[in-house]
Design a protein around this nucleic acid. Structure first.
Lengths: 189, 189
DNA sequence: AGTTGATGCGGAGGCGCCTCCGTATCACCA
DNA sequence: TGGTGATACGGAGGCGCCTCCGCATCAACT
């Protein structure tokens, strides 16, 4: 089931080389990463890069899939340690920090949200699931609204995080997340 | 004051031609607008286009400045007709509708929010001012929170609107705006 | 080992964005 | 009207993205 077709050895080798080269290139602090450069550094033709990763986003997504999975996995943990409301806020922060650190991730996340690709859809589903978990806890607990969809929260948060260089400085993102969080709280009325 | 320098006649003529061509090109329903095409259609070199409008966003912004001004101007009117909470929601809708109709506007708005350019900053300020107006009314009225900055609302809304093709379909944007709106409401507690 | 179809590779080339600068045009003044 | 500096014009060319397809390489079978 897990291997419907046998992959060619050289293909897999190149895939790994590309990921390594990309990791290095995106890791280096300074500036814009050319896909051609990644390919060259991997000792591979540009065509090969595109066959393995049809878009720039696909490459970045593959690069950070693990870390993103960690963010997703942090949701239940936060929920153990904190009350749902606070856990949600923490999770948003974690997500935001991650998205802005690897700032290529911001664009990639946008693409993931918008995309129709299967891979992309999966990541999106994982994120939604993480939020849903916290949301459910908050509903049961009575502190969060029941009529909010996790997907809406995810998309809104991604939208917020994908704005680079906020006019109000770095603290603005935190305030925006607070705003969204407030929208999810159960109003006592 | 308004004319520190006298502009050359041909420059102004070309500027108008470019705007006309752009209006036509962006207006036509179908697909992607090439700046080269705009220039050609205006009977002007590509270099001239870029001198008048240093970036694609600058061109689109010039194109829609009027309509955007109308959106800004609608804030006080909505406020006359409705209570602040409802007025804010209406305004968001108006804005969202506008941003998604001319869907080039979405990217442009993002750029405007992020940009450091003077022109851009002004548009941003206008938007913030419109929201501030409604917010103030809501604070006085007691229905909206006093500790929310208009700028945060604007940026969050723009972030939401700039997500094209939401996974949850077109209605999702409305729900996201509801979410943000809920975050601005004064909690009775 | 040899054959062969399937799979993957490389990079030239097309496209759009944007810059740069030699040339043309304008507006002002004598 | 003619001269002159300032201003604007045009488009070639550089760059990165991405596609396309002829050729190379692989692995499975004999």
């Amino acid at each position: 089931m897990s291997s419907p077709k046998k992959p060619r050895a050289d293909a897999e080798r190149n895939r790994l080389r590309l990921l390594a080269a990309a990791r290095k290139a995106f890791g280096e602090g300074d500036e814009p990463v050319t896909l051609e450069r990644v390919a060259r550094e991997a000792g591979v033709g540009i065509g090969t890069l595109y066959r393995h990763f049809p878009t720039r986003e696909a490459l970045v997504e593959a690069l950070y899939r693990d870390e993103l999975a960690q963010v997703v996995a942090s949701a239940p943990k936060l929920l153990e340690a904190e009350k749902p409301l606070r856990a949600l806020r923490r999770w948003m922060d974690r997500f935001a920090e991650y998205a802005s650190t690897k700032h290529d991730m911001a664009d990639t996340l946008r693409a993931i949200i918008e995309a129709g690709t299967v891979d992309m859809t999966q990541v999106r589903a994982e994120l939604t699931e993480a939020v849903q978990l916290i949301l459910d806890a908050g509903v049961e607990d009575g502190t969060l609204r029941a009529d909010v969809r996790a997907q809406d929260v995810v998309v809104t948060v991604v939208g917020a995080c994908s704005m680079r260089t906020l006019p109000g400085g770095p603290e603005q993102l935190g305030r925006m997340l607070d705003l969204i969080l407030a929208g999810v709280r159960q109003p006592p009325s």
